[in-house]
Simulated scan of single mutants.
Amino acid sequence: MPRPAAIWSGVVLAAACAATALAAEPMHGPGGPPPPGGPKSERPEPPSNEQRAAKLKAMLQLSPSQGAAADAFVVATAPPDPEDLPKPDREKLEAMSTPERLDQMDAMHKEAEQHMAKVEAATRAFYSSLTPSQKAAFDALPPQTMMGFAGGPPPMGPRERP
């Protein structure tokens, strides 16, 4: 016959587990849980090339004669339009053999390398047009800021979750 202390220990343990599970469960309002990844309206609109150019010109205090170089840099490093990015075709990927998938990955890497080569060339050309003090200011920008001018990671397409 089980002892009363053992029974009460089991009851307390079960209650603690239930309380932990309830605390971990998110509470949602009358609309139910939010959609996975949040609503699309929460994603901020990326700045336009004109806004990016104006920010760059203000940050570096560019002269009017440097405006064309800055505009060319901004256009060359503009982030791709999300609609233009390749969309993964899950059915096609699943139908491929491993060597075919590896070939596709190689092609995507080569495309990314070409994109980064263009970003690098545009950055070097723009950098050469800067004065020494502007170069120092440009060099002091954090990498996250520069990724904004470079358009973020190479255009490899958005990842879809199963």
Rank of each mutant, 00 (worst) to 15 (best):
S48V: 02
K92M: 07
W8P: 00
A137H: 02
D139H: 10
P153L: 04
M156S: 09
P36I: 00
P154E: 09
E91A: 12
A23K: 07
A70R: 03
P80E: 06
E111D: 13
G148S: 07
E45M: 13
A5S: 15
T131K: 13
L62G: 06
A121R: 13
G32V: 10
E100H: 07
A23H: 12
A72N: 14
A78Y: 00
P158L: 09
A70D: 10
R3V: 07
K110Y: 02
S128R: 14
S48I: 00
M156V: 08
A150T: 08
A125V: 09
T77A: 13
D106C: 03
V12N: 01
G151E: 03
D81F: 01
K57L: 04
M147I: 01
A6F: 06
L22Q: 11
P36M: 01
A95I: 04
L22M: 11
S65T: 15
V119D: 01
H28M: 03
L85K: 09
S97R: 08
G10K: 00
D84M: 04
V119L: 06
A19L: 14
P99V: 01
A150W: 15
Q66Y: 04
A5Q: 14
E94K: 08
M147W: 07
A117E: 15
R90I: 05
F73S: 01
G38K: 11
K40I: 02
M108L: 13
T145Q: 14
M146P: 05
A150L: 14
G32L: 10
M156F: 02
P143Q: 10
M27Y: 06
V11F: 03
C17T: 11
A53D: 14
Y127I: 03
K110V: 01
N49T: 03
